[in-house]
Every structure is written in structure tokens, then in C-alpha cells.
């Protein structure tokens, strides 16, 4: 066993540094605004082929964020994303939203988001971001989007031969910690995948990255490795996250990690700014840093094809 391949699934410092180098490459692509290609996981040709299960990911709408220039308004840029979605040549089966629907968990903010997202006429599966749990009782998100879910809002479902699992890693955050799933949810996850055939493709989605992107900014999940340990025997695992408002990918064994752009505002590359606060970019550049992700699964293909589409190339 090498130091970078521990039994407990945790990453050695060396491995993290290797990933960070790799992540750096991803950021360059993101800035270029084109279609990223890496290690064969993102292949436009594959995604363009007919057939297969197609679904969409949007993230970090932050409805209510209204920070003057250069951000016109979060509702406006979400509407532009919805316009892109409505114009897709193939209608996706459904959409997932990986959290931070609202900026401050206000009823009016959720209302505005629902109104705009509703125009897609797609089924939407939500997981919360930390901004969706800042109301005093932490109940508005669950009242609206948590029907049929467990605990703080986690659930699973099957579609097109793929097993989808929505996790919540923003509910009861601990001082000094990162994202957190907690014991109850981990137990549920272990039971949820138990007995499933190892050939079932798994898509895990949650707000904060389940892999360690940059702990200094809280970009990771304390017990994310524990969650992934339950999925080791599966041939195809795709982890879709938001939170960091930029595209990043990493492949480790059978697991593909991917984060989506925000529909509202970009955040800086890890460590490239004093803090992860919103990036102030010129108005003409903003739309190249916001967007949606289009995901295709085709049977007998180990990896899902993911295409990140910026609002403006």
C-alpha cells in the first residue's frame, strides 16, 4: 500500500497536493469559458450522441444576493440560465439543484427562485446549501423541498438505471469544521446502497464538495471520505457538488468528482484571493463564469459525460 492509497480512503498530503495541481488546470479551463476536457471524462461527442439518460445540474442561485455592480441581479442571471435550459435540443429527464437556492433563507427568495426555475417545467431534486438553513428555525427549506426526505433533507431515487443520492452536508456545522454529514446520515447512506448491484451507476450530489478542495476556506466535508468508503465496490460513482462557484474535476479510481458553476456570481480559485468572497469581474466577463451543467449517462459507459455550459462563451 502506498502512502497515497490508504485503506481508510483518506488522502495523504502528497495526494492532496497532486490534486491541487490538477485543480489548477481545471481553473484555467473555467476561465477560458470553453468546454473543459480532461482524462476523457468530459467528452462533448459522447454527450451529443442520442439516447442515454440526460439530466441537468444547476447550483448556487443565491436569490436575494444584490451586491451592486457587477452583478445585475441573481434573479436575472438565473433567468438567463433557464433560457439556456429551455433552448436545449433534447429535453433533460430532470434537474438537480445543488443548493444555495436563496441567499438568506427568506420565503420571498425561495418564492422568486421557484417562479424562475418553474419555467423549465422540469422535475427538480434539491439539496440545501448553508444559505438555505439560516432562518431561525431552519424549516423553510425542508417545508418546501424536503417532502419524503429523511433527517435534514437527504434521500435517494432511481432514474434511467442510475441510483441518485442527495446528501445534506450543511445542517449542523461545527466550530472549526468543514461540511458535515453526521452519523445518522452516514448510517442511512450505508444502508441505502447495501445490497445494490456493484454495476449500478451511482450519482451522489450535495452542496459542499465531498472531497477536500481547500480546507482553509472550508471547501470540503469532514466525513466525506467516510461516505465514499461505502461506495468503493461500485464501478461508477459520480459526485456532483456546488458551493465553490467554479468548475473543478478530479478522478480517483472509479469516482469522478465535479463541481458546477453558480448561476449568480463567481468565486476565486482556491488561495488566489484573501477570502472566498464574490469575485468582482468586469460585466462583460461575468457571464463566462456563470452557467449550468448538462450530464449524460449511457449504458455500458463507466463515466458520465458532463458538459459545463457558461451563460456566455
Amino acid at each position: 500500500m502506498s502512502a497515497s492509497d490508504r485503506d481508510d480512503g483518506s488522502l495523504s498530503r502528497r495526494k492532496i497536493l497532486e490534486c491541487m495541481t490538477w485543480v489548477g488546470t481545471g481553473i484555467l479551463w473555467s476561465v477560458a469559458g470553453g468546454v473543459p476536457r480532461s482524462l476523457g471524462i468530459i467528452d462533448e461527442a459522447v454527450a451529443k450522441e442520442a439516447g442515454g439518460l440526460k439530466f441537468l445540474q444547476i447550483s448556487d442561485s443565491h436569490i436575494g444576493f444584490d451586491f451592486k455592480t457587477p452583478y445585475p441581479n441573481a434573479v436575472g442571471t438565473l433567468s438567463e440560465c433557464v433560457g439556456k435550459i429551455k433552448a436545449l435540443p433534447t429535453k433533460p429527464a430532470f434537474m438537480i439543484h445543488t443548493g444555495d437556492i436563496s441567499h438568506l433563507s427568506l420565503a420571498a427568495q425561495f418564492d422568486d427562485a421557484d417562479k424562475v426555475i418553474g419555467e423549465t417545467r422540469l422535475d427538480v431534486h434539491y439539496v440545501p446549501g448553508e444559505h438555505d438553513f439560516v432562518d431561525a428555525d431552519r424549516k423553510l427549506f425542508l417545508e418546501r423541498y424536503g417532502r419524503g426526505s429523511k433527517g435534514a433533507g437527504w434521500y435517494s431515487f432511481d432514474a434511467g438505471g442510475v441510483h441518485f443520492i442527495g446528501l445534506v452536508n450543511v445542517y449542523d456545522l461545527k466550530a472549526g469544521g468543514l461540511g458535515n454529514l453526521g452519523h445518522e446520515q452516514l448510517e442511512w447512506l450505508e444502508a441505502d446502497v447495501k445490497g445494490r448491484s456493484a454495476s449500478t451507476p451511482i450519482v451522489l450530489f450535495a452542496h459542499v464538495p465531498l472531497w477536500t478542495v481547500y480546507p482553509n476556506w472550508g471547501w470540503g466535508t469532514d466525513d466525506g471520505a467516510q461516505a465514499l468508503s461505502y461506495l468503493k465496490r461500485f464501478g461508477s460513482v459520480t459526485v456532483l457538488n456546488g458551493h465553490i462557484h467554479q468548475v473543478m474535476q478530479k478522478v480517483e479510481g472509479n469516482v469522478t468528482f465535479h463541481t458546477a458553476r453558480s448561476t449568480a456570481f463567481p468565486q476565486p480559485a482556491p488561495g488566489s484571493a484573501p477570502s472566498p468572497g464574490p469575485m468582482k469581474v468586469p460585466a462583460e466577463k461575468l457571464r463566462s463564469m456563470l452557467g449550468i451543467a448538462n450530464v449524460t449517462y449511457q449504458q455500458n459507459q463507466e463515466r458520465l459525460a458532463i458538459i459545463d455550459t457558461p451563460l456566455q462563451a
Binding site: 448553508e130 444559505h131 439560516v134 456545522l173 461545527k174 466550530a175 472549526g176 469544521g177 468543514l178 480546507p215 482553509n216 476556506w217 472550508g218
Partner: peptide
Amino acid sequence: YQYFCYIHPHMM
């Protein structure tokens, strides 16, 4: 008294 940001818990 230790306190933290409950939105960004790495802030203490």
C-alpha cells in the same frame, strides 16, 4: 467564550 460563523464554520 469560543464562537464561530455558523455559515462558514472555519471562521472562529
